[in-house]
């Protein structure tokens, strides 16, 4: 399967489109269908497609275990940080309107909502990729 030209060519074309669609789903989640979780899952699906087409080592080269840990911590830090910032400003957890009122920046509410969605997306992408890579790992290949 490692030598299959059709799978490799289709994957090389499809993976960038899947990743761009995942970013669209994450950013567009506040307005329509989708959100951080769904976008992160779709982003992880692109890494699964890369695992199927090019093998686990090429995915590990682009996204090693160290970076998976960094991404999952970074995403949850963005999410919890913005939530606690709202708490410090005197509102409820993830109540963005308080920060917008205090700082006086228009549309800050929407930016913070998008930032929280991006944080969720990064964490879900890292954790899903980690689960699939560890399941597909035959042992000794992990770095």
């Amino acid at each position: 399967m490692r030598e299959n030209v059709v799978i490799r060519t289709v994957s090389r074309i499809a993976v960038p489109f899947i990743q761009v669609f995942a970013l669209y789903v994450i950013v567009h989640g506040a307005l329509g269908a989708g959100g951080g979780f769904q976008g992160g899952v779709v982003f992880a699906a692109s890494f699964i497609l890369m695992t199927v087409a090019f093998g686990l080592t090429s995915v590990r080269k682009r996204l090693s275990n160290k970076w998976i840990v960094v991404y999952s911590v970074l995403g949850i830090t963005i999410y919890a940080g913005i939530g606690l910032l709202c708490l410090l400003m005197g509102g409820n957890y993830l109540e963005y309107g308080v920060i917008e009122t205090i700082l006086g920046i228009p549309h800050l509410h929407g930016y913070l909502l998008d930032a929280v969605e991006i944080g969720i997306g990064i964490t879900v992408m890292a954790v899903m990729t980690s689960i699939i890579c560890d399941m597909a790992d035959k042992g000794g290949e992990s770095s």
């Binding site: 789903v25 269908a33 989708g34 979780f37 769904q38 899952v41 779709v42 992880a44 699906a45 699964i48 899903m128 699939i132």
Partner: peptide
């Protein structure tokens, strides 16, 4: 919910 079902249920 349909999007989540398609991504998680049928994919992951």
């Amino acid at each position: 919910v349909a999007f989540t079902e398609a991504a998680v249920g049928a994919g992951i």
